[in-house]
Amino acid sequence: MKRRHRLLLFAFGAVGIAFVYCAGALNMPAWGQYRGPYGDAIARLAVYQRHATDTVNAVTYDYRGFDTLGEEFILFSAVTGVMLLLRPEKQRAGEKKNQEGGNPASFRDRAALSETVQVFTTAIFGFSLMFGIYMATHGQLTPGGGFQGGVLLAAAPMLLYIAENTEAFQRIVSHPLVEFFEGAGAAGYALIGIAALTMGAAFLTNVIPLGMTGDVFSSGTIAAISACVGVEVAAGFTLIVYGYLREILSRAAREGQ
């Protein structure tokens, strides 16, 4: 199909989408006039039922916990897919064995990095870790939670890369424990759900004591699942970075021959 024909077909479809969408949007409640009732019911009940002050995370990890488990496994399988696609290819006969031997530092323009950047990024490494852990463990109280905290945790080793501490960076991202944590996070979520089954309740029922509202160790499974998700997201993102890094290195090694 020629590009012009394709564009014509798209214009036809776009007008159709716009028409149907506008017809639907014009019959929706006016913007800013949310009517409920489900959001209001959750906002009214979550604090009393689950002892969680952040109702968004009460929905994510409890009321809608089963769906989030599904999304969790989308994430898991996407990371698995990346690692599978970017796996190092087998050494062909006669090729030198330097697949993993490249140095990421060689792909950076050393002269371009200022000392300020180097010092500053190293200095905020610890803060970044701490903030990630804080986010992942306080999701039941204030905005945050496992997904956000996990991403922050995964960003910490990348700060080391920016700071050109490539040795430490490589040691962290290529560590076999990262893979373990990725699986453990996903399994932890599922096991918390199964734990409820062993107590005679439905899957993912909040069976852990709820604690005091406003306390870090409150809201039962919400805090526990949030922490599991944090571990999985952090490990998953780190694995993706590792996969791409390995790909770049092996490619450069191939081209360098």
């Binding site: 989030t68 996407a78 997904f147 993102f237």
Partner: peptide
């Protein structure tokens, strides 16, 4: 307050989308 449910719906998706993009880019490679 505003509706917490729709916020929860998109919260998970933001992170999941990123990994799916990583998967698609791996396919591009």
């Amino acid at each position: 307050v505003v509706d917490p449910i729709v916020q929860a719906l998109m919260l998970t998706d933001v992170v999941v989308e990123t990994t799916v993009v990583a998967l698609l880019l791996a396919m591009v490679v």
